[in-house]
Design a protein around this nucleic acid. Structure first.
Lengths: 201, 201
DNA sequence: CGCTATCTTGACACCTGTCAACCGCAGTGG
DNA sequence: CCACTGCGGTTGACAGGTGTCAAGATAGCG
C-alpha cells in the first residue's frame, strides 16, 4: 500500500487489523496523552515493522511524514505463517528487542536536561540509523520537521530552533536547507553528549 | 538467590549467564551513559523478569534497592525449556510487550515539562502497579529513595523534593515517613497530569 | 549515643516555555 | 507578473521553573 505525506495510517485505539512493513519513506508513531500534548514515541524507517497491538487495539497512532510505500500484512495471514514457520517468531522477538533498545535510547534523550544535549543525542541516533541502512554518512538528513523533533526529544519547538542556532554559531554544525546537517566539529559534538555543567563561558 | 539492599546483581556489559525472576523486593535497572549521570530505566517488582541480553551482554546494570529474593535461571536451562515448551516462548513475548508498554509510559513521564507533572505521573504508575499486585491501594508506597525517583523521572533530586513540597502544601498529598504517600485531592491530582499552562495563581 | 546517609531548604544564575512577531518560500488566483 | 495567503522556521521578550551548589535538618544504623 501507499501513503501520501501526512496521511494517517491508523489511530490509537483502532481495532488492529494488520501490521506494516515499510519499504520506503518515514513514519512517526505518537500518542497523545493525557494532556493536549502529543509525544512522538518513535520514527520508523525502511524495513521497520509496526502495528503492534494490545488486546486488538493499536497502542499508538501513526502518520506518514514522507510519502510511504509499505507492505500491509493482515493478521490472519500472519497467524498462518506463524504456525508454519517457527523462525518467523524468532524474527519477531528480535524486532521487539530492537524496539526496546531504541526506546532505551529515546529515554536517554528525553532525560537530558539541556536541549543541546537532547539534540546532539538525537542527531547521533539518526546518524547511526542512517549508517545501519548504509546511506551516505557524511551528513545527516532530517526527514521530519522541527516540530516533530521537538515532540520526540521532549521540548518546545522554539528550544530546538535555538539549539540548532547555538550549535551552528559555535561552529559545530552546518545546516543546509533546514534538513541537511553536517557535523563539523565532531569532537566538541560528542562532548555535548555528556552533561555539561553550566561552565561559565 | 538472595540479595541485600543495595547489592549489585549484575553490571552492564557483563556476559549474560542467567535471567532472574523476582519473588520479593524491588530492583532498579539503570544505565550510565554517556555523561556521568545515570538514568534509571525501570523499577522491577515481584514477578518481573529481567536479565535481557544483547549479544551475550547485559544491556543495563541492576541493583537491589530493597532486600530481594529471586529465582536465578541459567540460560542453558532456559534453552532446554524453550525447545520443550512452545507456550513459554509466547510468555516471553508477552513479557516483552509489557516491558515495551512500560517504557512507553516512562517516556511520557520523562517528556513532561514541569516536575509536578512528572511526579504525578510517576505516582500514578506506582499506584497502578501496586493495584496490579493487589496490594492495598489507599496509599502509595515508595520503595526507592528520592534520588532514584529523580533519576527515573529525569530531573534533579532537589526538584523532586520541591515538587513533593508544593503538592503537600497545596493539600493534594500527604506524606508519612517520606515513603508513604496518600493522595488526598484526587481531582486536582489528576489535573496535574495534563500539561498545565503556567496559569497565574 | 554519635555517625552517616538521606532529605529538605535557600540562593542564584541560567535555561526553557510561552507568546507573538517576523521571515522566506511555495502554491494560488487575480 | 504580482499580491495574497499558509506553512514552516527563526527570533525576541519576559517570566517562571529548574539545575547547581551548599548548608541545615532528619532519620536510620551501628
Amino acid at each position: 500500500v501507499r501513503f501520501k505525506k501526512g496521511a494517517e495510517i491508523y489511530r490509537e485505539g483502532d481495532s488492529a487489523g494488520a501490521v506494516f512493513n515499510i519499504i520506503t519513506g518515514v513514519v512517526k508513531a505518537y500518542t497523545q496523552g493525557p494532556g493536549r500534548d502529543e509525544l512522538i514515541g518513535a520514527f520508523l524507517f525502511r524495513e521497520d515493522l509496526f502495528g503492534l497491538a494490545q488486546e486488538g487495539r493499536y497502542v499508538s497512532s501513526t502518520k506518514a511524514i514522507t510519502p510511504v510505500t509499505a507492505y500491509r500484512i493482515p493478521v490472519a495471514s500472519l497467524r498462518n505463517q506463524f504456525s508454519m514457520d517457527a523462525a518467523l517468531e524468532f524474527h519477531v522477538i528480535a524486532k521487539l528487542c530492537h524496539e526496546l533498545r531504541q526506546a532505551q535510547r529515546h529515554a536517554f534523550v528525553l532525560a537530558s536536561k539541556r536541549t543541546t544535549s537532547k539534540l546532539t543525542l538525537f542527531l547521533q541516533m539518526l546518524e547511526h540509523l542512517q549508517a545501519a541502512r548504509d546511506e551516505p554518512t557524511n551528513e545527516v538528513y532530517l526527514p521530519m520537521d522541527r516540530s516533530d523533533i521537538a515532540q520526540y526529544v521532549g521540548t518546545s519547538l522554539a528550544a530546538i530552533s535555538r539549539a540548532f542556532r547555538t550549535l551552528t554559531v559555535r561552529g559545530i554544525l552546518k545546516i543546509r536547507e533546514h534538513r541537511h546537517v553536517k557535523i563539523v566539529d565532531r569532537c566538541t559534538f560528542e562532548a555535548l553528549t555528556h552533561h555539561r555543567p553550566p561552565s561559565r563561558n
